[in-house]
Design a protein around this nucleic acid. Structure first.
Lengths: 261, 261
DNA sequence: TCGAATTTGTGCGTATGTATC
DNA sequence: GGATACATACGCACAAATTCG
């Protein structure tokens, strides 16, 4: 079975990265040079390196070169159900558990929810152009780390929070605390969560924000928090797929309620 | 802001697919024809269609053409913690809940566990070439559906199951039942599970098995079942990322134990 | 500081092999 | 078997970013 050249080259590079003969940070020879070394055309080498860029093993920077990626310690993004109802920020807590120090930036704006978010929040049809959600964008980082852990976007319905001290998630007396904490402060009892996990190629903007190669893969976690039947928050959590694993765990046993279809 | 041609073409195709003017099953014009229509080179059109193939929107078949993908109903792969400890096969049950009918093929072999599996199962160093795990490969399908939901590979340590009626997961009186059921039959009390979720480009073989385009993305779910501190099964579950979402949900509350780091 | 060399990203055109119809 | 279409491969050119003397 004869493999295409670009697959052979990709495999060769992959093994040389794996066995350490191409350590992180190494700059690969230029395209034309590798083409000569492998006895192949430049386009073929390009296909091979693009493959490894999508796999997260290489990064290319125009004008600079193609580099073996500095692999951050494998990141564990624990998503366990027992997390909330504790003090402090959930992300800060997650990082502390791994001996890291979490920091983040955010920006909150009111807006009219786009149709897809509307649907997830169970909002009625829009009333003219009126703003009906608080949208907050986050970038979460480990203080010592160059590239962020995740970029996230959260939406909360204004009919719940407008005029309350928690309307802005990161401001006021409960600023920066978890959703369940903040909601409890206005008498909303968050009793369940639900997350849908999938993956897709990163957009150009996401790849840049997360410091990953163009076209590489992001894991998408779509979270919802519930108070009874009411959805009180939804959030899109975007993480680089090749360096971060979402970890779920729990007991084996009978159904105990609090599960959303 | 001037975008590259292949991005423009990809965006154009994406919107035409989204708004229904290129319905599922449509065959796109041949590359050389599209190149003429867009006033671009063939290579550029190829870049554009390859992008959409990776996104799961197109499939190309050599000699036949490039087609808008028949989008299966969005698949929900529920992974909730309360699933087990019920009668029947977990997959059959999952499908029933969605009004489908699950079927599957399998093949079991004893083998010596590869290092990575060894590590996950907590096995000691290999003893010569002796077989120490039962490896079972599955293909799970919806009876009415062309492409499988998932291909999975399960490993169970033989020092637990060898010589017992459950040594072959799909044979004997407990064949086809869930891991917790089968283990209970030999007195092993499975009390916790843990899943790591991430994603990567599909291998050629996986893409073919799952009926997705070359280079498109698979979600990987690495599952472990625990009996106390002992890992009694590990399983790699591979699903097409663009059509399947892993769904986790649970209550909000305090830690209740049964969680594995 | 600036300019020259280098490198990637993008684009063009062509040719051949192989699968499909 | 012939026509068609994609996969692979070759080679070239230019713009933009980066590097380095």
């Amino acid at each position: 079975m004869n493999q295409p050249s670009y697959v052979r080259i990709a495999t060769d590079l992959r093994t040389r990265i794996a066995n350490g003969s191409l350590p992180p940070g190494t700059r690969l020879p230029a395209r034309h040079q590798m083409a000569e070394e492998y006895g192949a055309a430049e386009g073929v080498v390009r296909q091979a390196t693009e493959t490894l860029v999508r796999e997260g093993l290489l990064v290319s920077r125009p004008g600079a070169g193609t580099f073996v990626r500095e692999r951050p310690q494998p990141r564990q993004f624990r998503r366990s159900w027992y997390y909330e109802r504790r003090n402090g920020s959930p992300f800060a807590r997650l990082m502390e558990e791994q001996g890291r120090h979490g920091v983040w930036e955010h920006r909150s704006d009111t807006m009219q929810a786009p149709p897809e978010v509307r649907d997830r929040l169970g909002l009625a049809a829009p009333d003219g152009g009126e703003h009906d959600v608080m949208c907050t964008r986050y970038v979460f980082r480990d203080e010592g780390d160059a590239s962020p852990w995740t970029v996230s976007t959260s939406w909360e319905p204004l009919d719940l929070t407008k005029g309350t001290p928690i309307a802005f998630p990161e401001a006021g007396p409960h600023g920066g605390l978890g959703v369940t904490h903040r909601m409890a402060a206005i008498g909303v009892d968050v009793d369940a969560w639900r997350e849908e996990v999938w993956a897709r190629p990163a957009s150009r903007e996401e790849a840049q924000q997360l410091g990953i190669g163009a076209g590489s893969i992001v894991t998408v976690i779509e979270r919802a928090y519930f108070a009874g039947e009411r959805v009180v928050e939804v959030c899109d959590i975007i993480v680089p797929a090749e360096s971060t694993r979402a970890v779920y765990s729990g007991p084996v046993g009978e159904e105990r309620g609090h599960v959303r279809p």
